[in-house]
Write a protein that binds this DNA or RNA. Sequence first.
DNA 1: AATATATATGCCAATTATGGCATATGGCTA
DNA 2: TAGCCATATGCCATAATTGGCATATATATT
Lengths: 91, 91
Amino acid sequence: MDKNFYDKKTEIFKALANPMRLQIIDLLLNGEKCVCEIVKELNYEQSHISKGLVKLKSVHLIKDRKDGLNVYYSLNCDCMKDFFNCLNGII
Amino acid sequence: MDKNFYDKKTEIFKALANPMRLQIIDLLLNGEKCVCEIVKELNYEQSHISKGLVKLKSVHLIKDRKDGLNVYYSLNCDCMKDFFNCLNGII
DNA sequence: AATATATATGCCAATTATGGCATATGGCTA
DNA sequence: TAGCCATATGCCATAATTGGCATATATATT
């Protein structure tokens, strides 16, 4: 079944609508990080972090790059920082 | 219970993570609209549209203004357009 | 080959979202 | 006051999300 425009956009916002995943995005705003670094910085289970990364990647908000045992994740678009700053004004 | 920063931010994204509510935002990008206009333009039940507006307003993404029988809604921040355009690139 | 380390996946119970239908509220007009 | 109209709320069954625990995969090292 083919998803339409608003359904796809909804998936992106669903991916962002979670405290842990927002923290991941905030970390990646400072540049590429491997999973182990993210796990060290955030207080969540490794398996949970991994699922969060899968979800963010599934909507193309982030991309990954493998290097030996490690997988490095980074942001896939540069508009996040501005929008997040704007939302901070609302909060 | 006091919600922390990421929980509040999550609420904003949850409010956006719905096709109907995203369509409402798109309509409001063109300026203030009353509920009846939104109901006319989108193919959803009036009660459902109303609930969507309540949800968007609860996280301060939109604001309202009453005029007689009508309630006019408009965006509460100007960063939506840029971010939405950016997401269109991802989709 | 065996082991260790980094990352990903499967399962599942508890919580939360969705959207329809009925109904309530509250301002207008006659 | 009565009735209409625009908007909001309550209830509810179905569906989706959440996050923990166990486990799988895949690469590196010895």
